[in-house]
Structures are given as C-alpha cells and as structure tokens.
C-alpha cells in the first residue's frame, strides 16, 4: 500500500479535482486511504462538499 501513500498537499489537490471529474482508480484509493488516517484532511473534504452544495443553493427555493 506504500505506493498509494500521499501527503496532505497532494490530498488537497485531489479533493479539489474530485469536485470536477472522477479521479483515476489509483488516485481514488490513495485519497481514500489518506482521508481514513488524516482527520484534518477529512474535515477539508467535508468543507469542499459543503461549498458545492452551497453554490447549488443560490437559486431561490
């Protein structure tokens, strides 16, 4: 699994990319493994999702 190890900087970039296109399998696995072990990046992942949800709510309801 060592080859799928990534740092927070790489995880951050992948989190942004994930909002825009499906990640490649290796990237997806690396990100998943990283998010399981890094609480701070898991928070950032939730924040990215929040931002997308919020932008889609700009419409009147």
């Amino acid at each position: 699994m060592a080859r799928f190890r990534i740092d927070c900087r790489r995880a951050h970039w992948l989190l942004s990319q994930r909002c825009d296109q499906p990640l490649r399998t290796g990237e997806r696995l690396a990100l998943w493994l990283h998010l399981r072990s890094c609480e701070w990046c898991a928070i950032v992942a939730r924040n990215f999702r929040f931002l997308s949800t919020a932008a889609r709510r700009l419409d009147p309801r």
Partner: peptide, 22 residues
C-alpha cells in the same frame, strides 16, 4: 497551507453541518 513535509501547517476549520448553515 502546508509544511515542507507535505503535512498541513494548521488545523482546518470545521464548517459543521451544511444544512444548518444553509
């Protein structure tokens, strides 16, 4: 945002429950 070793330099803010803010 990041240290030389690639780790985050500081804890991120937890934005909490999106529905609550929205």
């Amino acid at each position: 945002l990041f240290l030389e070793d690639g780790h985050r330099a500081a804890a991120p803010l937890d934005w909490g429950d999106p529905e609550q803010s929205l």
